[in-house]
Design a protein around this nucleic acid. Structure first.
Length: 392
DNA sequence: GATCCACGGGAATACACGGATG
DNA sequence: CATCCGTGTATTCCCGTGGATC
């Protein structure tokens, strides 16, 4: 990071108070261009993709690792760098418009499974990664998009390596479904499945990303804090403690750091105090889900979750919670209730059996309540679902 | 006009419990 | 005593509708 960049970040960060200099540097959903301490894994991934350097397609690759190990970060960073070297969209235009000689071009596209759940959305995402042209949002059929993709890759020496991130999370397109969608262009597309486990029947190299070790996580946090927080805002032993608490999970560690920074800002403090850190990691559930999960939901669902977080709905039956949320929004209680069940089914929130016996009418099935499974402070800070309301 | 998608309503099904039935 | 049944609630599942986009 050069000086100019630092100054620019300071300027843009002013509105965030005295502690936070650059929110993006702290965000668990933003990946650095150069992941810290993941050199060996990056090498393994490049090995697996080796054929692309000879203008060929690699075999199917799987990238697997436990939650918070940085699988997405590794793939995102690698693909960005590979695009620069091997002819991503911008370069492709520069080289193909000059002279007739068509150089081998390979695009590297990552598709975020959390935000791409239909065939239509999938083709759209891949096409967007393959060209700078505008891809329609609607009004055109799925078949049309598939045909465009085929046309795009039909010419010789054009291929794409498509990473499908989070292929094994609930609600996302599975690796087999992706293969099916890409079958019309199978000769020019290779896939990289990124997730917690290999796709069923995976054949081909697998890159295994291990959990961060304690000192590596310290490095990650130190790096993020140095660019995201004001100088001296975070004591070094706090970093160690944070890393120890997170137990190798970089997402949880960053979520706690971010949450603490938000709390310190609310306090108008000039450094992260112990109470901020403790409250922040209390807001990161054990064994919870990545904050990217709720952040990828539709605006209405995010609004429902924001209300849920503010409500502190513990000990309340799900139907009551739904009514309370509905009162604060334009949604019907019935719809909110269904949302909550769906979100619980996907693991974003968790149903907890409720023991209260005093249902006057007697009989009936026991109600349950719901609890967030995602980092609440981070979600509240990053969700844009209320932005239209907030500005002004 | 064609198309995708999220919302909304509600039907269908599962579960809990007490009381009736054999 | 084991099982079935009725009632009330919780949970899941389905599909029509309308907004947005091209």
């Amino acid at each position: 990071m050069d000086l100019r960049e630092r100054i620019a970040r300071r300027r843009s960060g002013r509105q965030h108070g005295r502690v936070i200099v650059d929110r993006d540097q702290l965000s668990p959903v933003v990946h650095p261009a150069e992941p810290v301490g993941r050199g060996p894994v990056l090498e393994q991934l490049l090995d697996a993709l080796e054929p692309v350097f000879d203008g060929a397609l690699p075999p199917p690759v799987a990238v697997v690792g436990p939650p918070g190990s940085g699988t997405s970060a590794v793939v995102t960073a690698s693909f960005a760098a590979l695009n620069e070297q091997l002819g991503g969209s911008s370069r492709a235009i520069a080289t193909t418009t000059r002279g007739g000689r068509s150089e081998p071009v390979t695009w590297f596209v990552t598709v975020d499974g959390r935000r791409v759940e239909s065939a239509f959305a999938f083709y759209r995402a891949v096409l967007a990664g393959l060209s700078t042209e505008q891809v329609p949002n609607g009004g055109v059929g799925t078949d049309e998009l598939r045909d465009r993709l085929r046309d795009r890759l039909a010419r010789a020496d054009r291929r794409a390596v498509v990473a499908i991130d989070h292929h094994d999370e609930p609600g996302t397109l599975g690796a087999d479904r992706v293969r099916e969608l890409l079958s019309p262009v199978a000769d020019s597309v290779a896939t990289v499945a990124v997730g917690h486990r290999e796709p069923d029947g995976h054949h081909g190299p697998t890159v295994t990303v291990p959990s961060y070790r304690d000192h590596e996580l310290v490095d990650v946090l130190t790096e993020r804090a140095s660019s995201g927080l004001a100088a001296g805002a975070l004591a070094h032993d706090a970093v160690r403690e944070l890393a120890g608490w997170a137990d190798g999970n970089a997402h949880d560690a960053l979520a706690a750091l971010f949450g603490a920074a938000v709390l310190a800002t609310d306090d108008d403090a000039d450094r992260l105090e112990r109470r901020h850190l403790e409250a922040a990691w209390a807001a990161v559930p054990d064994d919870g889900v990545h904050v990217g999960r709720p952040l990828a939901l539709s605006a209405t669902r995010q609004r429902a979750l924001l209300a849920l977080v503010d409500l502190d709905a513990t000990e309340r039956p799900i139907s009551e919670t739904a009514t309370a949320i509905a009162d604060r929004s334009s949604l019907t209680a019935g719809t909110v209730e269904r949302f909550l069940y769906e979100l619980a089914d996907d693991g974003v929130i968790e149903r907890v059996p409720l023991q209260t016996v005093d249902t006057g009418g007697g009989g009936g099935r026991q109600p349950s309540t719901v609890e967030p499974r995602f980092p609440t402070l981070v979600f509240r800070a990053l969700s844009t679902a209320l932005d239209d309301k907030r500005s002004g």
